[in-house]
Design a protein around this nucleic acid. Sequence first.
DNA 1: TCATTAAGTTTCGAGTCGATACTATATGAT
DNA 2: ATCATATAGTATCGACTCGAAACTTAATGA
Lengths: 192, 192
Amino acid sequence: MTSIPELIQRLAVVTQAESRQLAGSAGLQPVHVDVLRYLARCNRYSNTPAAIGQFLGSTKGTVSQSVKVLEREKLVSKLSDAKDGRVVRLRLLKKGRDLLSRIDSESPMQAAIGNLGPDAQSTLADGLTTLLRNAQRLNASKTFGVCKTCCHFRRLGGNEFQCGVTGEPLSVDDSTRICVEHESRPASVAGD
Amino acid sequence: MTSIPELIQRLAVVTQAESRQLAGSAGLQPVHVDVLRYLARCNRYSNTPAAIGQFLGSTKGTVSQSVKVLEREKLVSKLSDAKDGRVVRLRLLKKGRDLLSRIDSESPMQAAIGNLGPDAQSTLADGLTTLLRNAQRLNASKTFGVCKTCCHFRRLGGNEFQCGVTGEPLSVDDSTRICVEHESRPASVAGD
DNA sequence: TCATTAAGTTTCGAGTCGATACTATATGAT
DNA sequence: ATCATATAGTATCGACTCGAAACTTAATGA
């Protein structure tokens, strides 16, 4: 019986090694793939270098460098925000999207999860979720959840939603995307 | 409900950020701590640069560099093997051991796991173990388990054990240490 | 004895990463 | 309106990782 920290570390090593290999086959570093994956999952408020830095736990300097590489490789494009001239908006280009799906389809880790059986998957997901929430709370790090699970998420009725922070309407698709502004709802249904 | 790969990735980011901070406070990189932790857990057959490389999924060149740093910082010492002049044996020095325990005691992730409750912990450990085994099998990577769970582990009777590969006797302590030569036993008790 | 293999080291180039200094745009208090 | 301050991002530096390749030394085997 191995301890949980050791298991997580092992899993992280395997994941990292796999990521290095898959990213390397495209001439990239693991972080670059992490950035692409984030951009594929985040909502329209969260596609900025600053948000990436918070999501990946790195500084703006590092993010700036990484983005430069991705831009050079035509995987991502920059455009500056219309309202605030300081902020840069990042767009995942087709080449980036294709790269991501290729990588995901070749990932043995993904396959390993698929081999797990639905029950095992859902209990594992539950355990990991609680652990992650705990760790994030103790580390005082952002939760970065999906819109739907945020305390500012308002259901207007039917398939109409609204963000309590910006007041903007949200589509069904919006509601499943990752947001920087995400705040967990005070544990309602989730097991403790 | 977030997907398992995403949960693992989030957990890895939090762990990595935490590790960077804790390692950084000692003037080290995360990898250095990983090496120290491995040396604290491995058995007498497995304290070589080559084994570290396999355990951490990096090349011998990289390991050589990292070990050089650890040696410079007096956290680890080298001595060459008596039987085989090519192999280097690494010893974790007191300063290294102390650093490790300080880091572990300050880790919010450790605390988060502690907050989990015994039942949640054991089901989580089970899920992670199966997932890890699957991933390792698919990645054709070494399992690196503890002696006790190896297919070459022989129980002689009482507290006397033996390694089927080297033929050497193993103590109780030996049997709980990580080994490079580890091979999983063909799934006997472990749940699928 | 000589080729081959294995364990480590060294060096190189691209890149991460934290730190720091910097630019440019927004915001807020007087 | 002005000026201090905060925020988003960029640029540069030094220590380090990492893969690759060349190299050294020691073991192994035909």
